[in-house]
Structure formats: structure tokens, C-alpha cells
Write a protein that binds this DNA or RNA. Structure first.
Length: 561
RNA sequence: UGGCCUAUGGUGUAAUUGGUAACACAGCUGAUUUUGGUUCAGUCGUUCAAGGUUCGAGUCCUUGUAGGCCAACCA
């Protein structure tokens, strides 16, 4: 229903047009083609949501294809991590494919090109080849090996395949046009020699196909109808089509490459090289550090698949450059977590509060609803006693009317408990407030229905009973970079913008119901934000991550004044 | 001294394909609220520039401007 109300993005317009002309719905097929050389990040999430979203929309299969043509960089470990991330996001691929499964077919086609005089073995060094390539404004020069005979090419290529030559001795090049205005058409390399074991084919091959030669042909083999990639591949399209021209038969579907702009997120970087630097320099603890923009980092931080999918849907897809504000991602997690996260109370910056007219040693169990957004979530009981913790920020000796919290002589409600009045406070030698003494109105108990309980007081504070509180390590995260576009400055390195305060660890005092929390559990610490239980948690020590704060209009007010 | 892509509020994306510039976020007001949360109501503000075609242009044409991509045996 909602889907029909949504307007189409430009890719969907292309598909609709194809459908109205020469494509049938059954022919639609998509693919998500990561190279297994690193972890997926939020940018990949957009691409995943685009391709799998299209699959869902058109009821078309989507392949997960590993573009594994460079054994120097790729590992099985990444394959597994990628599969886990895609699955976690909530998508199901039709077929798990590997470009390496097509090595033989690709080789056979390459032989065909050689026979047709459309490919040749070049025996120069990569430097020599590069120097002949020309520049975007100057045409290139033909290689001295460009006109080798078919027989010689065939023999050399087979020798390459059979391991008769060392790395770099020869390459196979397509014979296209050294004067093309498109650099990629200047006799691109199709194969290089690489005596390196592959994570799937092991040492079966010592020549490996290049991206351009592999990608379109893989799409063709899998009969992918729309091969979607990012804008920097636009110049590759001409070559993609040229390679396809060499093998396509008229009774099969011919794939189309179309390009969209990659989504950039403010206050973050996504290039693998830069992410790796963050890990290697110890700025973060690993690829799944909750501050990382990797899928695994976001997962650990407490982001939900739904929130990431909604985010991707909202930002959409287009062809212009963009920097999406992270606050939009925050919005989507809050939106989802607001619906599903149970409310609990936890004090992160404690200030002792003593209720002087509350009987010493007495304890009461107060009923608290688990989620006002979801009545079916039920309620639980929380202990109340004479000595409590509240947040330091929730008490001031003096404050103006805008301060809806506790001040001397002022009243406030303790959430799910009683209305209290601050009477006095004690300070240490330096003037720091150490304790607040207050009185409570015994008839004002929440939910008791008495006249006193119905009284409106302006502020409501969360709290925790000191004798009942459990402690936990709470990790408070802030954005990793202080600049919206850390890698967008020519004169400065992105590392110059690392936010030194992106992680703060505090001890939290939590209501005892949290004692049996499991790794991954998500809760809202009322008035503080959404948190989840980190994988570092043990039975002895709970560790919480703050996923995101609550919207905080008070903090904004404070900042202004 | 090249080729190609792009240009819509602070941000991202739309616009029945030439017919009232809309949606979300952010911002600001107010209401509700036992979370300064949520929810609700309202508000702010936009077609890169100049020409042209047309009854009518964000959309088509021309010129300009700005930004991006292209010279890995990476993907």
C-alpha cells in the first residue's frame, strides 16, 4: 500500500520504460556484487537496499555475487561477514554466485577474442603500457606487440594460463582504440598473471581476469537485467557494452549497466582504506566498533535493520552528489526504537537524594509500564527506598522557571513514584553538591488515584534506588568526526578531524530488572536515550552502548543561552 | 587542452514526462504528556545564471558558471 504511494526513482523509471518496451517482468533480475576484501558499510547498505528493494518490488530474483577476481586482496572471512550483514539487513538472495565460478568460461571467451583478432598478448611492463596510454587530452600509442599473430597470441596466452611465465611478464589486452577519448577503451588489460592462491579456486589459475572483463560477462552469464553500480563506473559502460558485444547471443537477455550516485553520510568516512587506518591506528577498537559506519558497527551500536532500510528508502537514489546528514539516520533509529524498546531507568551521573521523611530501611515496589507506545508490553515492578540516585543535571540550587527539574524549595515527580520537594543540600569543600535532602508526599504515589497523586507538577525525573541499584559500564558515543565532510578537505587529512570525545565510559546505576539482560537487548533509559547490551558484557559485568540519545529540546534551549 | 556526468529549501528526494514546485529530516510556534521523549497542529523556506521556444518551462534548446568522474597488471 505504502509502496504504491511512493514515487519512482530514476532507476525504477528506467525499468518501467524497459518493461513497456522489450522486457518482460520475468526477465528482471538484479545483483549485489561486493568484492570480498573488507567489511560492508552504510554505503553498501544503500546499494543492498536498492537492489534487493527492486527485487521485492518487481518480485524478481537478486543474486549475491562475490566479485572475487583479485586473490591478492580477498579472503573467505569477508565472504562470511558479507553474507551475515546482508542477511541481518533482512534480505534473501536468490543465488550465491562467485565471479571465480566463471573463470573457465571467461578464459574460453578470451580465446575466442584472440582468434577474432580482438585481443592480444602484450609483453611490456606495466610502466611501459601506462606510458603509452596517453592522457585524457592526448591519444595513446599502439603497443609494439599489438599486431602479433593470432597463433602467437594463442600460444602465449595458453602459456600464461599454464604458469610458464612469472607475474608481470605478459598481459592479455583487448584490441580496441588507443585514441579513444575514453581512457578505458585504450586497449584495456583483460588478464594479468598472478601466482597467488585464490580463496576458492586455490592454485587452479595463475591468470586472473580484470574487473571490466569479468563484470559484464558475469551479469550476462547470470542473465542480470539491470546491473546497477555507482557513478564512477559510468566511463566503464562503453567498455562493458563492448565486451558484451563480443559474446552476446540474440536469444539471451543483454544486461544493462546503469549508474547512481553513492550516498555520502556526514561526519563519517567509508573508504576501506580510511576505515582500515582507523582500525590500525587504534582510533577505534575494530571493524565492528560501535562508532564505525560498517554494518557490523551499526549493528553492535544498536541500530536495527528496519531503521537502516527506512533510512535508505528515505534518502532515495539519484545521480547528483550528496552528503546526507547523519541526523536522518538518528531519526530512523529513534523512530523504530521508540516503538519496540522497553523503558527502564538508569542514572549515569549520580547525585544522592535522601527523602528525610521516608522511613529508614523501608522498601516499596512500584509498578512501571514497560512501554507507553505499546500497552501489550505490560509492566514491571521497581524498588523504591529512602536513598536514591538522580542525575546531577536534574538538580540546581537555584534556577529560573524554564528549569523543569529539581531546585531548592521546588517540587518534582519521581517517575512512577512520589512527588518530592527539595529542602536542602550539602556540599563538599569545593562547593560541589554531594547530597540533596528532600521530603515526599506519601499520598502522591503514582497510580494511587488520590487527589494528591493527580496533582500536576512540572518536572518528572528518573531515579534509581541506591540499595537496589545494579551497576554497569555504559559507553556513550558521539560522532567519530567533528567535521561534516572529514575527507572533503584538500589541505587536511581526515584524521585531523577525529573527535577526541567520541567515546565516554561511565558507570551507570540501573534498576535491578536489568540484571538478566542479554547481549543485544535494547532498552530506553528514560530521558537518556536508547541503549543496547554490548557483546563485551559478562555475567559479572554488564556493558551498555548508547545507540542514540533522545531528542533533547532542553539541551538546545540550554545551548542557546 | 579532450570526453562524460550533475545542478530543485539548511539536508536528502519528488513533480501525472511541458500544466498549481511536493514529501521526509532539520529549524521555529503552540497543544498534549508522570520521559523537556512520543503524539498532534501550525510555521519557515527552493528550481545555478542569462537568453530562447511556448498560451504555459524545474522539465525542451543555446551559451555560460560551478562541482564531479576518467591516464591501477584494483574493484
Amino acid at each position: 500500500m505504502a509502496e504504491e504511494a511512493r514515487s519512482l526513482n530514476f532507476i525504477e523509471h528506467i525499468i518501467e520504460e524497459d518493461l513497456s518496451k522489450d522486457y518482460s517482468r520475468e526477465q528482471l533480475r538484479f545483483r549485489f556484487p561486493p568484492e570480498p576484501n573488507g567489511y560492508l558499510h552504510i554505503g553498501h547498505a544503500s546499494s543492498i537496499c536498492l537492489n534487493f528493494g527492486l527485487g521485492l518490488r518487481y518480485n524478481a530474483p537478486v543474486n549475491l555475487r562475490f566479485d572475487d577476481t583479485n586473490p591478492a586482496k580477498e579472503e573467505k572471512e569477508y565472504v562470511e561477514a558479507i553474507k551475515k550483514d546482508v542477511t541481518w539487513l533482512g534480505f534473501e538472495w536468490d543465488t550465491e554466485c562467485y565471479a571465480s565460478d566463471y573463470f573457465q568460461q571467461l578464459y574460453d571467451w578470451a580465446v575466442k577474442l584472440i582468434k577474432e583478432g580482438k585481443a592480444y598478448v602484450d609483453s611490456q611492463s606495466s610502466e611501459e603500457i601506462a606510458s603509452q596510454k596517453g592522457t585524457p587530452t592526448d591519444p595513446g600509442k599502439d603497443s609494439p606487440y599489438r599486431n602479433r599473430s593470432v597463433e602467437e597470441n594463442l600460444k602465449l596466452f595458453e602459456g600464461m594460463k599454464n604458469g610458464e611465465y612469472p607475474d608481470g611478464a605478459h598481459v592479455l589486452r583487448a584490441k580496441i582504440d588507443m585514441a579513444s577519448s575514453n581512457m578505458l577503451m585504450r586497449d584495456p588489460v583483460m588478464y594479468r598473471i598472478l601466482h597467488k592462491a585464490h580463496h576458492r579456486t586455490n592454485t587452479d589459475w595463475c591468470i586472473y581476469p580484470m574487473y571490466d572483463w569479468t563484470h559484464g560477462e558475469s551479469d550476462y552469464i547470470e542473465q542480470v537485467s539491470h546491473s546497477l553500480c555507482t557513478l564512477e563506473f559510468l566511463p566503464h559502460r562503453e567498455l562493458y557494452d563492448w565486451f558484451l558485444d563480443q559474446v552476446v547471443s540474440s536469444d539471451k537477455l543483454r544486461p544493462k549497466q546503469r549508474e547512481f550516485a553513492r550516498r555520502n553520510l556526514s561526519h563519517t568516512v567509508v573508504s576501506k582504506r580510511k576505515l582500515l587506518q582507523l582500525v590500525e591506528k587504534g582510533i577505534v577498537t575494530g571493524w565492528d566498533d560501535p562508532r564505525m559506519p560498517t554494518i557490523s558497527g551499526l549493528r553492535r551500536r544498536g541500530f536495527t535493520p528496519e531503521s537502516i532500510r527506512n533510512f535508505a528508502d528515505t534518502i532515495g537514489i539519484a545521480k547528483r552528489e550528496n552528503v546526507v546528514d547523519v541526523s536522518l539516520l538518528d531519526f530512523h533509529v529513534r523512530e523504530h526504537l521508540n516503538k519496540i524498546a522497553p523503558r527502564v531507568m538508569g542514572v549515569l551521573n549520580p547525585l544522592k537524594l535522601v527523602i528525610t521523611n521516608y522511613e529508614e530501611g523501608k522498601e516499596e515496589w512500584l509498578e512501571a509500564e514497560n512501554n507507553p507506545e505499546d500497552p501489550s508490553a505490560g509492566s514491571r515492578e521497581i524498588p523504591f527506598s529512602r536513598e536514591l540516585y538522580i542525575e546531577q543535571e536534574d538538580f540546581r540550587e537555584e534556577a529560573n522557571r524554564k528549569f523543569f527539574r529539581l531546585k531548592l524549595g521546588g517540587e518534582v515527580r519521581l517517575k512512577n513514584g512520589y512527588i518530592i520537594k527539595a529542602e536542602s543540600c550539602t556540599k563538599d569543600d569545593e562547593g560541589n553538591i554531594m547530597e540533596v535532602q528532600c521530603t515526599y508526599d506519601p499520598k502522591s504515589k503514582s497510580g494511587s488515584g488520590t487527589e494528591e497523586s493527580l496533582r500536576k507538577v512540572k518536572g518528572t525525573l528518573h531515579w534509581v534506588s541506591i540499595p537496589h541499584a545494579i551497576t554497569a559500564e555504559v559507553r556513550l558515543y558521539d560522532r567519530l568526526f567533528s567535521d561534516p565532510t572529514p575527507d572533503g578537505h584538500r589541505d587536511k587529512d581526515f584524521l585531523d578531524f577525529v573527535n577526541p570525545d567520541s567515546l565516554e565510559k561511565v558507570t551507570g546505576y540501573l534498576e535491578p530488572s536489568l540484571k538478566d539482560s542479554k547481549i543485544g537487548d535494547q532498552v530506553q533509559f528514560q530521558r537518556m536515550g536508547y541503549f543496547n547490551v554490548d557483546k563485551d558484557s559478562t555475567t559479572e559485568k554488564l556493558v551498555f552502548n548508547r545507540t542514540v540519545t533522545l531528542r533533547d529540546t532542553w539541551a538546545k534551549l540550554e545551548q542557546k543561552s
